[in-house]
């Protein structure tokens, strides 16, 4: 079965789109250990059953906040086939931040460019093809309340799930001064095959530099911790 996680900033129409996709087949529970609501649902597309998991709405993916950590852990640990990132088309500056973080996590992202009706109404022009090209992920304009674009989204999600392995990955560059330390730490991280097998090495390197609590703990447990931490110096 294909698993699709839905993520997005708060108030971008995530719940509406989730309902659009799954209809009535929903299940509400809690994320293990915390009192954050976990909604899952299923839908069938061209005979294939797809499970949809609604992740908490967040702006970022740090280790400090509980809901951000839930979302992040789900993506790194459960490795859903596709992560649908719901982006408010009228506020791309803020929304794409989460998208970049997801790309860094090497998630198989599909962007739902929501509020497309408002975008058009306000005379905003978004080059959808080019945005998709630059980010290396499919971008589908949607209007959650009317369901416009939902069918296309389903199709694109299916296609993305099938092409998961061949997908071209793009991440942003941080500029040479920052890329150099990232590269050094990344090389050190790669020496620990089990760690770099579980998590994207570049992501680990960035998080080590950011002093991310959870990742630092992972590094502590690594047999190569001395090398990795030396690389940060």
């Amino acid at each position: 079965m294909i698993t699709v996680a839905i993520i997005g900033n708060p108030n971008v129409g995530k719940t509406e789109l989730f309902n659009r996709l799954t209809g009535m087949k929903q299940h509400v529970g809690n994320w293990p250990g915390v009192t954050v609501e976990k909604k899952t649902g299923t839908f069938t597309y061209r005979g294939e059953e797809i499970r949809v998991v609604d992740l908490p709405g967040t702006y970022s993916l740090t280790a400090q906040a509980a809901d951000e950590l839930i979302a992040r852990n789900y993506i790194v640990d459960e490795k859903p086939d596709v992560v649908v990132d719901i982006v408010d088309g009228t506020n791309l500056e803020r929304n794409l931040y989460l998208t970049l973080l997801l790309l860094e996590l090497e998630a198989n992202v599909v962007i739902a460019l929501n509020r497309w009706d408002m975008v058009k109404e306000r005379g905003i022009v978004i080059e959808v093809d080019k945005l998709s090209e630059l980010l290396g992920v499919p971008v589908v304009p949607t209007v959650a309340p009317t369901g416009e674009g939902a069918e296309v989204l389903k199709e694109v999600v299916m296609k993305a799930a099938k092409e998961k392995e061949v997908r071209r990955k793009i991440v942003m560059g941080y500029g040479e001064d920052v890329e150099r330390p990232i590269g050094v730490v990344e090389d050190a991280v790669r020496k620990d095959a089990s760690l770099s097998g579980r998590y994207p090495p570049r992501w680990l390197a960035i998080k080590v530099l950011e002093r991310d609590g959870q990742v630092l703990k992972l590094v502590e447990e690594s047999p190569h911790r001395a090398e990795i931490m030396a690389a940060v110096k």
Partner: peptide
């Protein structure tokens, strides 16, 4: 980076 991407993909008004 976002600003750079939007510079070439987004036009307001």
């Amino acid at each position: 980076a976002i600003a750079d991407i939007l510079e070439s993909t987004l036009t307001k008004g």
